[in-house]
Write a protein that binds this DNA or RNA. Structure first.
Length: 187
DNA sequence: ACAAAGATGTACT
DNA sequence: GTACATCTTTGTC
């Protein structure tokens, strides 16, 4: 009962897209699981990489929606965003946590830990577990190696303030599945 | 050319 | 709870 998401699903407000992505399935080369935590970053958000306009790093967020924006975090981690578009402006949704369902052994090997809760509970961990690299920046989400499937059934979504930022910390633009054991932090 | 901060994770006390 | 790795991007001089 699930359908693959297409670029049209990423047209619109980043907050709406971030909310709608909870419960969807994300696979990279068949490895991944259910998205249980996201954050929205819109064009006029001081905490967004797009706030100061187009730069070489954030260029993919100014391109077509339904693609990946991959950036290096703290010089160590690769973090994955889904590009969306609201009123012609670039915006992004950070994938913060996944409930592992496919390719657990591959993820354990990449992460070096066994506990399923520690495989994908955080944006840097998601990047490592799914094998995300800079090669995938700007890549379409409806083409290999990506696979993004709509949620099989309705999900109870909760929201709260975003994590790890110093600007606009008051807005509740972090979304997660209620009661999930696989989020990076409790809501 | 230079400096500072960063959408984090891990190890250690 | 605190410290620190690690390096790219961006703004400033």
């Amino acid at each position: 009962m699930t359908r693959p998401l297409v670029p049209a699903d990423f047209e619109g407000d980043s907050h709406v897209v971030a909310h709608a992505l909870i419960g969807c399935t994300l696979l990279v080369d068949g490895v991944g699981g259910r998205i249980v935590e996201t954050e929205a970053y819109d064009r006029y958000d001081p905490a967004s990489h797009t706030f100061s306009g187009l730069t070489p790093r954030n260029a993919s967020m100014f391109g077509p929606p339904g693609r990946a924006y991959v950036y290096r975090s703290y010089g160590i981690h690769w973090c994955l965003n889904f590009v969306c578009r609201e009123e012609g402006h670039g915006a992004g949704v950070l994938i913060r946590a996944i409930e592992p369902t496919h390719g657990l052994d591959t993820m354990r090997e990449r992460r070096g830990v066994h506990d399923a809760r520690l495989l994908c509970s955080g944006p840097g961990r998601v990047g490592q577990a799914l094998g995300i690299t800079h090669d995938l920046n700007g890549h379409r989400l409806d083409r290999k190696p990506f696979k993004v499937l709509a949620a099989a059934h309705a999900v109870h979504v909760v929201e709260g303030p975003r994590i790890g930022i110093t600007k606009a910390i008051d807005v509740p633009w972090r979304f997660g599945e209620a009661g999930s054991k696989f989020v990076s932090r409790k809501f």
